[in-house]
């Protein structure tokens, strides 16, 4: 019985082991700061355009959709509140994390996967470097640091998108909109909006790395790992979001 659970449990166990090693390496020499910076650039700066675009459109669409509902109660002036609270606490972290999961978990998995199947990871070990230290820890650090920043950017651009719609199509004033945005946000909401991407970044990067360095079966295997990394990390984004929302709701 429960034989079917054996493989997933073993995977989870290996994954946790990798996470523990990657974390422990933060406190152990040698440190590859160059790689951390390069990854921060690739993950953070590289994802900026798509994150801003998505954030902006989400804010605008939300304002549009909500204005109609709010109008029936004569409350279309509150569009700022709705846009900001939804973005900061829920939509911003989830959307940004999903985008980064799609863009970077796949990138990491395919890069490390190709390195694995062409024996570059073995070569690294043979030449005196720990692949977790050299490859996994920098990516984990970079993404865990950058994802909250990206989320803040997405949130802000989303609010601007909502503001443009509110101003142009709904007819609220700028002051009304931004006052609403400011007033509705509680300290917990902002905290929630920053903690979620922190966890997401940690998990997305490690899922990408895990599927990358466990790749087998040549180029085909790289494709498989890449797909798996995106699917698994996306699911984790939703699971983490649910958990953390539950915690913050009860706070």
């Amino acid at each position: 019985m429960f034989q079917f659970l054996k493989a997933p449990v073993a995977t989870l166990q290996d994954f946790c082991l990798l996470a523990a090693k990657a974390l422990a390496n933060i406190f152990r020499a040698p440190h590859y700061w160059d790689d951390v910076l390069a990854q921060m650039d690739r993950i953070g700066v590289g994802s900026l355009p798509i994150v801003m675009l998505t954030g902006g459109f989400s804010g605008a669409v939300m304002a549009l959709q909500m204005s109609k509902a709010l109008d029936t109660y004569g409350a279309s002036s509150q569009v700022g509140q709705i846009v900001s609270i939804t973005l900061v606490a829920q939509l911003g972290p989830v959307l940004t994390s999903l985008l980064v999961a799609g863009r970077n978990a796949s990138g990491i998995a395919s890069e490390l996967g190709s390195m694995k199947v062409t024996e570059q990871i073995d070569a690294m070990r043979a030449l005196g470097t720990d692949p977790v230290q050299k490859l996994v820890t920098p990516r984990m650090l970079a993404m865990t640091i950058m994802l909250p920043f990206l989320t803040v950017v997405a949130d802000f651009v989303g609010m601007v998108g909502g503001w443009l719609v509110a101003l142009g199509l709904i007819g609220t004033t700028t002051a009304m909109y931004w006052t609403g945005v400011y007033e509705i946000l509680e300290y917990e909401d902002v905290l929630q909006g920053l903690i979620k991407p922190l966890f997401n970044g940690f998990v997305i990067s490690l899922v990408g790395c895990y599927y990358g360095i466990t790749t087998t079966g040549g180029t085909q295997g790289v494709g498989r790992s890449t797909t798996q990394a995106v699917v698994v990390s996306s699911v984790w984004v939703f699971v983490i979001n649910l958990f953390l929302t539950q915690i913050f709701v009860n706070l």
């Binding site: 190709s114 390195m115 062409t118 024996e119 570059q120 073995d122 070569a123 690294m124 043979a126």
Partner: peptide, 10 residues
Amino acid sequence: MLFQESALFD
């Protein structure tokens, strides 16, 4: 060690 497909770092 020389690896089979050289395994140079891309």
